[in-house]
Amino acid sequence: MLVVADDEQSTVKQARAGSPDAWDALFRRYQLPLYVYVFELVQHEQTSLDLVQETFINAARHLDGLRDDAKFGSWLFRIAHQKCVQHWRKQKSSPDFAIELDDESSEEQLDPREMLIRREQEEKFMTLLSQLPPAHRSVLLLHYVEDFSLEEIAVITGARLGTVKSRLHYARNSLRRILGEQSGPN
């Protein structure tokens, strides 16, 4: 995990006691990674925001169900993952699912050539990511966005450790194919 575990544990303890500040700190820390994870799975901005909100509400309601405070992050992502799965199940019956891609990434003041290379690289990465099957995408996102261990990813996605390993291997190979080609000549 990226956050120092002890800090997070004490924050979770305070949240258990009902401290709004602790909840605020926890939500603030996870809101963007959660959103990224959900968005890359469902590919819809408003749905992703809704699912993040539902994840927060669920977490606040069911914090008693969390046994180990140190695993708050993986627990939160597990809730989000389950929300995505529920969404996919519902979505099967509703074909009107428009894909909205938010392309408003802020461009810093870069050399135009460098900016072009960066954008191209990002686009390739994002294209590749969206081309992966959801199960592989999910594993890759959890590994790269939150740096979860394979065991944690297995818990979050509800898959076996061997399955997670093979999915990650497959996803990494696909990524390497594009990103390696990009960074190789430089």
Partner: peptide, 16 residues
């Protein structure tokens, strides 16, 4: 990839 992803979605932060 983490930087790319987070930077790409940073625009959603006010809504979050």
């Amino acid at each position: 990839p983490r930087d790319i992803l987070l930077a790409r979605h940073r625009a959603a932060e006010p809504k979050l």
